[in-house]
Amino acid sequence: MQLELFSAKVLLFPAHRDRRLVKKKAHTLIVLGRERGEKNWFAFCRKLDKQMTKAGMSREKVLAEIDRLALAVRAEMYGQRSSSRPGGSAA
Rank of each mutant, 00 (worst) to 15 (best):
Q2C: 14
Q2H: 15
Q2L: 15
Q2F: 15
L3H: 15
L3R: 15
E4D: 12
E4R: 11
L5E: 10
L5Y: 09
S7C: 08
A8Y: 14
K9V: 10
L11C: 10
F13K: 10
F13W: 09
D18S: 04
D18L: 04
R19V: 13
R19N: 08
R19A: 13
R20N: 08
R20F: 07
L21R: 02
L21E: 00
L21C: 00
V22P: 00
K24Y: 13
K25L: 13
A26W: 03
L29V: 11
L29N: 05
L29T: 05
I30W: 07
V31C: 04
V31Q: 05
L32T: 12
L32G: 04
G33H: 03
R34W: 12
R34K: 13
R34D: 11
R34L: 13
E38M: 11
E38T: 11
K39N: 07
K39G: 09
A43P: 02
A43N: 06
C45M: 05
C45I: 09
C45R: 02
R46P: 02
R46H: 09
K47I: 05
L48T: 00
D49N: 08
K50Q: 08
Q51G: 08
Q51E: 12
M52V: 01
T53Y: 03
K54A: 10
K54C: 05
A55C: 08
A55D: 06
G56D: 04
M57T: 02
S58V: 02
S58Y: 01
S58A: 06
E60M: 06
E60F: 06
K61D: 14
K61Y: 10
K61E: 14
V62Q: 01
V62I: 06
L63T: 07
L63M: 06
L63G: 06
A64V: 08
E65R: 01
I66R: 00
R68N: 04
L69V: 02
L69A: 01
A70M: 01
A70H: 04
A70W: 00
A72R: 01
A72L: 00
V73D: 01
R74E: 14
A75N: 14
A75F: 11
E76I: 02
M77Y: 00
M77S: 01
G79W: 03
S83D: 06
S83F: 03
S84D: 13
R85G: 08
G88P: 06
S89N: 13
S89P: 05
A90L: 15
A90Y: 14
A91Y: 12
